[in-house]
């Protein structure tokens, strides 16, 4: 159970960064840390003590393998996370080109 709590601490560090920081790059870093924490949490749920990787071999029992479904889904999640980071970094670069800063409180030209 403590390992879930450590993973949660990592998530909270990312949440703090994403909510509190005023630099756009720091906000992106917070988002990425949150994504890493969630991926690690899902893999931790599927882990079996003294388990083996879910790759069949002649000397391997089916009983002591870790959960393959979670790993397969997390593989999808990692790649989707990369797509998210691509889009967010592109938007941040565009904002820097237009406003000349990464500070989110200076980006106020659309304010009514």
């Amino acid at each position: 159970m403590e390992i879930y709590l450590l993973c949660l601490v990592l998530f909270c560090v990312g949440l703090y960064g994403a909510v509190r920081k005023r630099n756009l790059i720091k906000i992106i870093i917070g988002l990425v840390i949150m994504e890493y924490a969630v991926n690690l949490f899902l893999v931790l749920i599927g882990y079996r003590l003294q388990g083996r990787a879910p790759i069949l071999a002649s000397d391997q029992q089916v009983l002591n393998m870790v959960d393959p479904l979670v790993q397969s889904m997390v593989m999808t999640t990692i790649v989707i996370g990369l797509a998210l980071i691509m889009l967010v970094v592109a938007i941040a670069v565009r904002i820097y080109e237009k406003y000349g800063t990464f500070d989110i409180t200076k980006i106020r030209k659309l304010r009514g």
Binding site: N39, V43, Y47, R52, A53, V66, Q71, G81
Partner: peptide
């Protein structure tokens, strides 16, 4: 991921 017996994920995470 490598410690948690997920080698596919470790490779994917490295590249990403």
């Amino acid at each position: 991921f490598l410690v948690l017996k997920a080698p596919n994920l470790a490779i994917t995470q490295l590249v990403v």
